[in-house]
Design a protein around this nucleic acid. Structure first.
Lengths: 114, 114
DNA sequence: CCGTATCCCGGCCGATACTG
DNA sequence: CAGTATCGGCCGGGATACGG
């Protein structure tokens, strides 16, 4: 296995950067588990394909788990893993820093102040 | 001024993501101030142009300051701003999370364990 | 010593369409 | 309902060269 990241910062950043990843994780934090369609409905403007990609990456990085019920009508549920949950203090800190240091007019919708 | 970021997380992430930004900031944190050439020398593998870009972005986002001595021989110094310094608890948290949750074999050189 | 311009490549992500 | 494939645009960032 060869080094893939410059340092710990680089490695962690790769796991949380992605346009919708944080919103997916916050959504799962609030509701415990979500089906694919529910995520797509609650996360405004994300495309079908991109949501799939971000979910795959989160899953491959061990931040969420995926449960396929394998029924005739497709039914898949996503949840946060323990690793994923351990990231929340950092995610909250990032949101709060933005809230206090960045002009609110530049921000579409508040995420961390809910 | 129109909204530019999805939320506070998105906004903060834009300010700290960039392949070399964190290394620049850690370098400035250790040495208080650095000239352009010193940064380039201490940050292995960064290209001239890319270092310039990252410094400009950090400056435009108010995380560092730039002082041009305007002498015959060019002489420019970079420092952390107060805003920049206020990010360090978060940067450290990100590094430490990576240190404890990511396989060390994937990481080239430790950054936060110095 | 420091900055800027140009060219180029790879990756993210959106639109769309097709599958079971 | 959930996933996959293809196409295309945009942007970060590396190589290189030139300018003050």
């Amino acid at each position: 296995m060869e080094p893939k990241y410059l340092n710990e910062f680089d490695a962690t950043m790769h796991m949380i950067q992605g346009k919708w990843k944080i919103m997916i994780m916050y959504e799962l934090a609030e509701t415990d588990e979500r089906r694919f369609g529910e995520l797509q409905h609650h996360i405004k403007d994300v495309s079908h394909k991109t949501l799939t990609n971000q979910l795959r990456e989160l899953e491959n990085d061990g931040l969420i788990t995926r449960h396929d019920f394998k029924t005739a009508e497709p039914h898949v549920e996503y949840r946060l893993s323990e690793n994923g949950k351990s990231l929340f203090p950092i995610l909250d800190a990032i949101c709060n820093w933005g809230d206090t240091h960045i002009d609110h007019k530049l921000i579409e919708r508040s995420l961390c102040d809910e």
